[in-house]
Design a protein around this nucleic acid. Structure first.
Lengths: 151, 151
DNA sequence: TAAAATAAAGATAAAAATATCTTTTATTAG
DNA sequence: CTAATAAAAGATATTTTTATCTTTATTTTA
């Protein structure tokens, strides 16, 4: 459905929104461990999120790390997808036809229309903050590990 | 959304259902041209569809080619996705979490539940034949070319 | 039965996605 | 100002996906 990049991007962003703040920035090692993703690769993805549209903020040096501004928290989830170039899921034809459109639809177009609209809704109406709040209520962002206590 | 393999698989299958029959088998060259896909790669995919679950039938030799049995026409579109290993779209978690489930949901789970159900419906309730009929009514399966006449 | 047609199978190549490691730059604390 | 810290940037490696080419096996027809 989504690429690994997109999955890591979403999970990392949610985690940062949940656990981080301007005066508690999170290190890439913590983030990667927490969401069970490859650290260096996740770092690259966070760079995208930082550069491409400011979903994530970062600062270097001691006590540096990643966090989300208040403005960023209000961004739709779609912003994360866009930053990693993965919003095709709500923009493209199921059959991969460039030509497919309302006036020149593919055989699945009519059926997919409503679904696509709902996917779009989900990704555009849901904010990052909203997902973080879900997560705070116990929704998981990790694989294979019970919510773990700090060392 | 779907891989190229899945897209080609769907388009090829629809095209074969539309234009082919047991006594008018279609050659790989015609199919690939018609759906605007790379010929050799499409051949590999049709092999999968032939072996993995008999969605497509084929015979070699003169007048050989690909066609769909009557039984195959009644298969759900999902069968095509399964043959190319791409049904994750209706089985997996949006965030890529193996752990995600009703009892241990991810932050998008509640919202995605309904959408996933509709995707599943679409792929399971729609038959290959139904798509071919849509196509017969003018729904496109190709990119960038007006319905072209034979040479 | 021989030749031609056609998909299957196998081998190889190219491109894209994923992953890791190293070096550089910015920031902070001392 | 220096040392330490942490992300950014760059380079490289690996894996997967996509694509192509070649050889083989099957089938039909002449």
């Amino acid at each position: 459905m989504l690429s690994k990049s997109a999955e890591y991007a979403l999970r990392a962003t949610i985690y940062i929104a949940l656990k981080g703040s301007e005066d508690n920035k999170l290190g890439i090692d913590e983030i990667a461990k927490a969401i069970d993703s490859p650290q260096y690769f996740t770092a690259k993805i966070l760079q995208l999120l930082t550069k491409n549209n400011g979903v994530v903020s970062s600062v270097r040096g001691p006590n540096g790390g990643f966090y989300l501004s208040d403005a960023a928290r209000k961004l739709p989830v779609r912003a994360v997808l866009e930053a990693v170039g993965e919003d095709g899921i709500i923009t493209k034809c199921v059959l991969g036809l460039k030509e497919c459109s309302e006036s020149r639809p593919c055989p699945m177009h009519d059926q997919y229309r409503a679904i696509k609209a709902q996917l779009r809704q989900m990704f555009e109406k849901t904010t990052i903050q909203a997902l973080a709040e879900e997560s705070a209520k116990g929704k998981i962002v990790i694989n294979n590990r019970p919510p773990k206590k700090k060392a």
